[in-house]
Design a protein around this nucleic acid. Structure first.
Lengths: 229, 229
DNA sequence: ACAAAAGTGTTCGCCCTACACCCATGA
DNA sequence: TCATGGGTGTAGGGCGAACACTTTTGT
């Protein structure tokens, strides 16, 4: 335990809930810890905030250290501050989520030594998590359930070109319920933020679906108006 | 500046945005600081988190110290963590908001000495605030604008018995726009969480309005369903 | 030919919006 | 009697929900 100037004896950490979509399942990125406490447990990627960086910058740095990715839309969603959430001292953790495109082209970069490995894990079949990370994750899931109704989070999970069925899958996984195909397509197209491409799906053993792109320009023009599922 | 165990050299504070409604205006509670930095400036009520209390408990304690009120619905909404937000060291501040009933029956209790006085101030005509408190407040206002569409925040600002016009005023002030009287009444009554009383308004020099009460029982039964403005 | 997913319209009910006048009360 | 806010209904348009079959493609 630490002995410090009263009032200045806290640590602040970031924990990241990184969502990914592999075409079928909703995944999150976990690391296997290589240090006590909770050595060998699975945990959310996270680390302490340095003294010379803001918490937002820290979140970006930690995400970059763990994945090699920068410039990711990342949103703070809650600060967890129970007294005993960390066994080695008073640590307040600020949680962020991000939506990431999975794909072989973006391998996970080497990690700091406190993690043995990082791995994408299906949200539906998680191991026991270290600290209060299950709680942090649950709150993150609730958050994106609400936010995906107003923000275009789904397209950040999908490849640049995607089919409407893939978009629908993402919504169904996050909201946890089936949606009607015709109604879904009508609605998502009614926002006018998807651009239909000439191109079609390839390599599937059934009728190839039309590919679409998310049109960020048009989306930005909607600013102020709400999209709503 | 402080010299501490690396990693455990942060302070964590709470800042509270306390909303109140006096029948006409939306107010927030400010204090006038009696200590440097920002001596003599107006600021949001807040204080450092103690080592042996959770941030939620700390928020409750601080609110109680400043107002004498306990058991207030208080919600954390953001953590502010810029490097130089506090001139005397690295302080992360976790912001909470609460909706309070104003009224002479609940005077503000004596304050800790770091405040000269506390005062309800009209949100529409604020003084310059210390630290990044204007920013914290702005973010709080955005937050309640969204939340009042789904949560019964308005009734926490109102006296136990209130008229429909008063409810409408609160919504108009928070949303920053006029609403149609007939449509508003239809909608608010359609949620079935208001109980019409036998009683009428007294002491007004025009037709007395019917008084209503918020029915928490019925509201709790709605759990899961969303109310939506 | 069959398996698998793509793609497509209509109907109905509900909710949101816009809109204006009479009523009750106290001064 | 006047000034002030209280209280009330309806019509039209738009949106969300329910619902099933044909098309395309690869094997």
């Amino acid at each position: 335990m630490t002995e410090n100037t009263p009032g200045f004896d806290f640590a602040v950490s970031i924990d990241c809930v990184l969502f990914g979509f592999d075409g079928t399942e909703l995944k999150i990125l976990l690391i296997e810890r290589n240090e006590d406490p909770f050595k060998d447990w699975w945990a959310l990627p996270g680390n302490l905030v340095n003294n010379e960086e803001s918490v937002d910058q820290s979140a970006q740095r930690i995400l970059k250290e763990l994945t090699g990715l920068g410039d990711i839309y990342m949103e703070q969603y809650y600060a967890f501050g129970d007294v005993n959430r960390h066994p080695q001292g008073r640590v307040i953790s600020v949680a962020y989520y991000a939506m990431l495109r999975l794909g072989g082209d973006k391998p996970l970069k080497p990690l700091s030594s406190y993690a043995k490995k990082a791995q994408w894990v299906n949200v539906a079949s998680l191991p026991k998590l270290a600290f209060d990370h299950q709680h942090i994750l649950n709150k993150g899931l609730e958050k994106i359930k609400r936010r995906i109704k107003h923000l275009p989070l789904a397209f950040e999970l999908l490849p640049e070109k995607f089919t409407l069925t893939q978009v629908q899958s993402v919504y169904e996984l996050i909201l946890g319920k089936k949606l009607d195909k015709r109604n879904f397509r009508k609605k998502i197209l009614s926002f006018k933020v998807l651009k239909e491409l000439e191109e079609k799906q390839r390599g599937v053993s059934f009728r190839a679906a039309t590919l679409y792109k998310f049109d960020k320009r048009k989306y930005n023009k909607l600013f102020g108006k709400e999209i709503s599922f």
